[in-house]
Design a protein around this nucleic acid. Structure first.
Length: 268
DNA sequence: CCAATTGTTATTTA
DNA sequence: ATAAATAACAATTG
């Protein structure tokens, strides 16, 4: 379930191998869709024998840097079903394990059944283009109310649900987080971005930051989301709004399954 | 066999 | 030219 917080959790998992050398790079399923456009020989050549230098995350994108100066960049995206795991050093592999980095004390595993994820690689002392062009994180200083307001205007014809899924402005937001944010901001997901009052734009901005902040905190402390969050109620039939206990409604909006409370989030 | 799936991107439509 | 909708990608599950 890779959205913002889960991606951070994954990064942290692999980061356990920081400082340790990669003894072997195992590439399985070389034809896999996750390697579309990836030059596999340079991945193997570039990482074998190199220490894990550090890792970063922006939205749903992760980068793991290798080498003494961190000049070998391995970009990972988990797509819809990707996951990172830590296994024993001699762990063999399962069917959908695509990339395994062997260290003396552990194996770093990247698996993805549906293969919408992606592996990128670059060897460069400067930041690779695919990393440099990422938008500012939602929890960074550059993510401001006015940036959200401008985006609402530019995408004025988009339903709010679709708006929040646009990674160019809301990196890391996925299906469940979008629903969570709109529910908390009391905004109907079908409302068009251009229809928001200034107060509603403020609410959208603040709630977005808030939900991201809380999600990161919860993952950091390795806790589960409280039962007062919509996420626990949105998938099951007959789910009730945790706030007012009205029956939740589900429909396809912006092509994505969406859940909301008709009482708290009126259509207008 | 059909529909659905916590994502992105190329193509089509308006 | 823009922006929004749709199809496609691949695999599994009910």
């Amino acid at each position: 379930m890779p959205e913002l917080a889960e991606v951070e959790r994954s990064r942290r998992l692999w980061d356990a191998g920081r400082g340790a050398k990669v003894l072997e790079v195992v590439l399985r399923n070389r034809k896999s869709h996750v390697f579309r456009g990836t030059d596999l020989p340079s991945v193997a050549r570039g990482i074998t024998g190199q220490p894990l230098f550090g890792s970063e995350v922006v939205g749903k994108q992760m980068v793991f840097r290798f080498g003494k100066r961190g000049q070998r960049w391995l970009g990972l995206h988990l797509g819809m079903t990707g996951e990172l795991r830590i296994e024993a050093p001699t762990y063999p592999f399962l069917k959908y394990d695509h990339l395994i980095l062997r260290q003396s004390k552990r194996s770093l595993v990247f698996a993805d059944t549906r293969q919408f994820g992606r592996v990128l690689f670059a060897e460069t002392d400067t930041v690779p283009n695919w990393w440099a062009k990422l938008p500012p994180s939602i929890l960074s200083k550059e993510f401001t109310r006015s940036a959200v307001a401008e985006f609402c205007y530019r995408r004025k014809g988009s339903p709010l649900k679709g708006l929040l899924l646009m990674q160019e402005r809301f990196p890391g937001i996925g299906n469940w987080m979008a629903d969570e944010i709109l529910w908390r901001a009391r905004l109907n997901p079908q409302r068009l971005a251009g229809s928001l009052s200034p107060a509603e734009v403020t609410a959208l901005y603040r709630t977005t930051r808030n939900v991201c902040n809380k999600a990161m905190q919860i993952v950091g402390e390795d806790r589960d989301f409280p039962n007062t969050w919509l996420i626990h109620h949105r998938w099951t039939d007959g789910g009730k709004c945790p706030r007012c206990h009205t029956s939740l409604v589900r429909a396809l909006i912006s092509g994505r399954r969406t859940c909301w409370c008709p009482q708290c989030q009126p259509a207008r």
